[in-house]
């Protein structure tokens, strides 16, 4: 269970972007978060993934409140998340080949021995062949790069996937393929998915429930969800 309780967050203490928002994500559940651009949903997603310290409120992971954010968060809490961002260009280190980018979390957590196995499992899943895996980000398309980012997000088998406008830069077929991979991972692992976006049709088809930003802002305390 991932609980965001009464989160207030922003980049300037005087003017928070997110005010008193609460959201709960059960294991195996896919929640869509709909909102207009600039409303703060990405900030909320970053708070949920422990990448942005909120000004107030708590994030509770399976009953344990998060005490640190970014590098100060305990590693096992950080790696419980997989994140996907809107712009694959900015989300991949331009110097790493796709294979190295996907394997990087395994290297960072000292699990080098698992790299060949995990690469063999994940590459066909996201549709990346050996040729593409050997290329650097500037030599592949946005869609191919986002697939590599998805593989990287899944490589540590996260308990929660935070997809921040994951498909905003992509065409319909790539979107469908990526969502299918996320969905099969959710079914197989029981991970929770928080999908942030502004495309109501996509989110309503994809997710178990879709929450509008306005409903969240109005909500005080815990929203009435199962």
């Amino acid at each position: 269970m991932l609980e965001l309780r009464d989160i207030t967050a922003g980049y300037d203490r005087g003017a928070p972007v997110v005010r008193g928002v609460s959201l709960t994500l059960a294991p195996g559940e896919a929640v869509g978060l709909l909102g207009p651009s600039g409303c703060g949903k990405s900030t909320l997603a970053r708070v949920a993934a422990l990448l942005h310290r909120p000004d107030a409120g708590t994030v509770v992971l399976d009953g344990t409140p998060a005490r640190g954010w970014r590098h100060r968060a305990p590693r096992e809490q950080r790696t419980a998340f997989g994140v996907l961002f809107q712009q694959p260009r900015l989300s991949a280190d331009p110097r790493l080949r796709l294979a190295d980018a996907i394997a990087e979390p395994l290297r960072a957590t000292g699990r080098k021995d698992q790299i060949p196995t995990r690469l063999r499992e994940l590459a066909p899943l996201v549709g990346l062949g050996d040729d593409l895996l050997a290329r650097r980000p500037h030599e592949v398309s946005d869609g191919q790069l986002q697939r590599a980012c998805l593989a990287r997000a899944l490589v540590l088998r996260p308990r929660w996937l935070i997809c921040d406008e994951m498909t905003a830069m992509l065409d319909a077929s790539t979107t469908a393929a990526l969502v299918a991979v996320v969905e099969s991972y959710r079914r197989e692992s029981g991970a929770g998915v928080l999908a942030v976006g502004h495309d109501r049709t996509l989110l309503e088809r994809w997710c178990d429930r879709t929450v509008g930003w306005a409903e969240l802002g109005a909500a005080t305390g815990m929203p009435d969800v199962a």
Binding site: R46, A49, L50, L51, R70, H71, R75, R78, T79, F81, G82, V83, F85, S91, A92, D93, E104, P105, A108, T109, C149, R152, A153, V155, L156
Partner: peptide, 8 residues
């Protein structure tokens, strides 16, 4: 951010 989430 992705590197941090990856445990770096």
């Amino acid at each position: 951010d992705a590197a941090l989430t990856g445990g770096a």
